[in-house]
């Protein structure tokens, strides 16, 4: 089925829209499939079920956000896709293969950057490329590291240690690292949570730019608890129930045209409607104590 909500509005995005339509018509390939996944942990107090019976399907090139209350199991669900967390029941299929461990077909951007503090910016990326892409030659690996660092405008900082960078720069290194292994699926676990609002805004646009430059072929799954961020970036927002035993409460479509404009989008009636809807879906879950975790 063709999504009519992405019909062209301006002359310059006609091409992107036709591409989009073509893509939808030609290859509605499923990239990530989560089938009846439950995850339980053994704790001192007994078995704790984080997420229960989750089923979710993400198409190739789609950007989706998982949003919900802190501790609702978003990151756990993400973990089952990355292979860091083993589902207790059910299975996750990525690009037609069952996930059993982390792999280079999935690039991960961690919550707290997770750069190795003793390696320079360049080496942080090179080590990842070197490990993940074993069949490439040394020259190709170097080129990949260089190319991706230039993409995030950090080439001139290549010899710095992560400790010498600002939070936003660190996160750009982490994103460049994830892109550099050219994964089909990109998993972002609260990637911009630790950044200030202004840096965050810039990073959103930069992320979309990278995704665009890559012909919108990468599937991106992002964990967030920022409603604006989720709407601006995603095609779908997956709202999760409160844990324990969290489930999907609702999947909200975001039929906003791309490329999106940060400034204009907030006045779009569709945006406002989605924003209200998400707020309503999430607000009844938030107690006063938890409000601070929303931003």
């Amino acid at each position: 089925m063709i999504d009519t909500s992405i019909l062209p509005t301006t002359a310059e995005n006609v091409k992107t829209v036709t591409d989009e339509l073509l893509k939808q018509a030609v290859s509605p390939e499923t990239s990530v499939e989560v089938n009846n996944v439950s995850v339980s942990f053994k704790t001192a107090k007994g078995l704790y079920t984080a997420v229960k019976d989750i089923t979710l399907s993400v198409k190739k090139g789609e950007i989706i956000s998982l949003i919900g209350h802190s501790g609702c199991g978003k990151s756990t669900l993400m973990g089952t896709i990355s292979g860091m967390v083993k589902p207790t029941a059910g299975e996750v299929i990525v690009n037609g293969k069952k996930v059993s461990s982390p792999g280079p077909d999935r690039g991960i951007v961690f919550q707290n950057y997770s750069l190795l503090p003793w390696l320079t910016v360049y080496k942080n990326i090179f080590v990842a490329v070197d490990s993940a892409l074993k069949d490439k030659t040394a020259v190709e690996k170097k080129e990949l590291a260089e190319h991706n660092l230039k993409m995030v405008n950090l080439w001139e900082h290549k010899d710095k240690l992560p400790g010498q960078l600002s939070g936003g720069m660190k996160q750009r290194v982490a994103i460049a690292r994830a892109f550099s292994i050219n994964p089909k699926v990109l998993l972002l676990d609260e990637p911009f949570g630790a950044l200030d609002a202004l840096t965050k805004s810039t990073m959103h646009v930069e992320l979309l730019k990278l995704w665009n430059l890559d012909h919108r072929e990468k599937t991106i799954i992002m964990v967030t608890h920022d409603i604006e961020e989720a709407i601006f970036l995603s095609d779908k927002v997956v709202v999760m129930n409160n844990g324990p035993a969290a489930t999907i409460k609702e999947i909200v479509d975001v039929p906003l045209n791309r490329p999106r404009n940060k400034k204009d989008i907030v006045h779009d009636p569709v945006y406002m409607k989605i924003h209200d809807k998400l707020l309503n879906l999430l607000i009844d879950k938030f107690s006063i104590d938890d409000i601070k975790t929303d931003e």
């Binding site: 292979g83 860091m84 982390p102 280079p104 991960i108 961690f110 997770s114 190795l116 080590v127 690292r177």
Partner: peptide, 9 residues
């Protein structure tokens, strides 16, 4: 996690 994610030997 970095080691796992990028398949370090």
């Amino acid at each position: 996690n970095v080691s796992k994610a990028f398949g370090f030997s």
